[in-house]
Structure formats: C-alpha cells, structure tokens
C-alpha cells in the first residue's frame, strides 16, 4: 500500500473547512456555531481515542482482543437499539441477542470458510459494519413491533379469542414488521455503487487497492450485511413475540414510552 495519508499538519489544515462551516452558520444566524465547533472537536477526540485503542488491539491483544472489542460493540448496540423500543418488555436484552447472533453467525461463517482473513485489522472493521447494520435493523423491528402490539391489539385479541395460538395470532404483524425492517437493507444492496460508494470499498481504494479488487471485498460485505440483517430481524421478532405474550397466550400490556 503506497497511498498518501494526510499528515497531522494536513489534518490541522483541513480544520480550516470547519471554519468555513462556522462562518456560514454564523453569517446566516442559525445559532449553530457553538454546536459545529463542539461537534468538530468531539469528532477529532473520539477518532484519536478510537485510533489509539485500535492500535493497541492490533499490536498487542491479537484476535481475543478483537473479539472482546466486538462483544463490547454488540453490548452498546443492544443498549441503543433497546432504547428505541422502550416499553417493549426485555427490549435491551432482545436487541443485544439479535445483534450478537446476527454478527457472530455471519462473521463466523466468513472467517471459518477463509473468505476473509482471521486478523484483528479485518475482524474489527468488518465486524463493526455488521454490528452497526444489525443494530439498525433490530431497532426497526423492535420499535415497529411495539407499535403493532399497541395499535393492533383488537385484531390480535380477535385471533386469540378464536383459539389461535399467540404465534399465529401475531403472524401478520410479524411478517409486515420483518418486511418493513428488511426493505432498507434490500434497497441499499440494490443501489450499491450507483448512488453510493460504500465504506469498505472506499477505504480500500483510498488505501491504494485496485478498484476491481476493492469491489470483491464490498460484494462479500454486502452479502454479509444482508444475512446479518435478516438474522437480527428474525431473532428480534421471535424473541419479542415471546416477551409480548404470556403462557396463556395473552398479549401483555405494552407501556407507552
């Protein structure tokens, strides 16, 4: 790799572009100057910190450190996605399980088959992409199911009253939720490269990799994200179903967030 990477002086120079943004919001009296400055400084601090952590992981901890780091990301993702579905019983636990299984299954298959290298510098960024995608999907599933359980209670109870088991009574809502949650993943897969150059490919090209090589990586990543989203959605939906109904096939009350 012989790509030219900006020096620290170059980074400092690019800060002038933040000033451009501040000038625009200040001249337009948007009242956002302080927010822009805080965001820019915060982003720099966060990235320096994460760069230092990654350096530590790459140099000293090896694969166990990478897996530990991924596990931490899964826990954080579970908290974030669970918060989106406040009011749904056990939302955080469900989101964590969905993201964790979606990530472990897809990344595990690609590592086990040797499609991607078992190296810290591969596992962490690729795993991070999977976790982020699975988190968004799990959050969509949980928040949508919570709304379905609240707004479609008469229809769900009408099916239960006919003697249908909870899973059948909830099936139409389960299906529509999965569809709703997976459409973004399908759409972004369909337009990849046309209206966006995705992260993995962009990174490889910036690092000096031949574009035709970079796209191979991207294709693998897209397929992995599709599978991870589908698994995370399914697990989130199934676990939510169990949390939404009791042993006597009754729909629990879902608290208003």
């Amino acid at each position: 790799m012989n790509a030219q990477v900006p020096s620290w002086a170059g980074v400092a120079t690019s800060a002038a572009l933040v000033v451009v943004c501040v000038l625009v919001v200040w001249r337009q009296r948007l009242g956002l100057s302080r927010d822009v400055l805080v965001a820019a400084v915060q982003a720099a601090i966060q990235l320096v910190a994460i760069g230092a952590v990654l350096l530590l992981l790459f140099r000293h901890t090896g694969l166990p450190g990478a897996i530990g780091w991924l596990a931490l990301m899964v826990v954080i993702a579970g908290q974030v996605a669970g918060r989106r579905a406040r009011g749904l019983p056990q939302a955080t636990w469900i989101a964590t399980a969905a993201v964790g299984v979606g990530t472990a299954a897809t990344l595990g298959v690609l590592l086990a088959t040797g499609v991607i290298a078992i190296e810290t510098r591969v596992v962490i960024p690729v795993g991070g992409m999977v976790v982020a995608n699975a988190m968004q999907t799990a959050a969509l599933v949980l928040s949508r199911l919570r709304e379905e359980a609240r707004t479609a209670r008469p229809a769900i109870e009408a099916r239960l009253a006919l003697g249908l088991p909870a899973r059948e009574a909830f099936a139409p809502h389960h299906r529509s939720t999965l569809r709703y949650a997976l459409i973004p993943a399908v759409d972004s897969t369909r337009v990849v490269g046309l209206i966006s150059l995705p992260g993995a490919m962009t990174g490889l090209i910036l690092a000096g990799v031949d574009p035709l090589t970079a796209i191979r990586y991207q294709i693998v990543v897209m397929y992995m994200l599709l599978a991870a989203d589908a698994l995370a959605a399914l697990i989130a939906a199934r676990l939510s179903e169990r949390a939404l109904f009791d042993q006597a096939h009754r729909l629990r009350q879902v608290a208003t967030p």
Binding site: P154, A155, E157, A158, R159, L160, A161, L162, G163, L164, P165, P172, A248, H249
Partner: peptide
C-alpha cells in the same frame, strides 16, 4: 379454567368484541 387447554377453552367460549375487527 386453568385446568383446560387455553386454546381449546377459547374455542368453546367465543368472544365478540365491542368494535368489529375484520382480519
């Protein structure tokens, strides 16, 4: 009632709700 299978019980004891809900 808990001695009955709950799904079989609901088929024996039908319920029509307040607002008609078509499925």
């Amino acid at each position: 009632l808990p001695e009955f299978d709950v799904l079989a019980l609901r088929r024996r004891v039908g319920l029509v709700a307040q607002a008609p809900t078509l499925l």
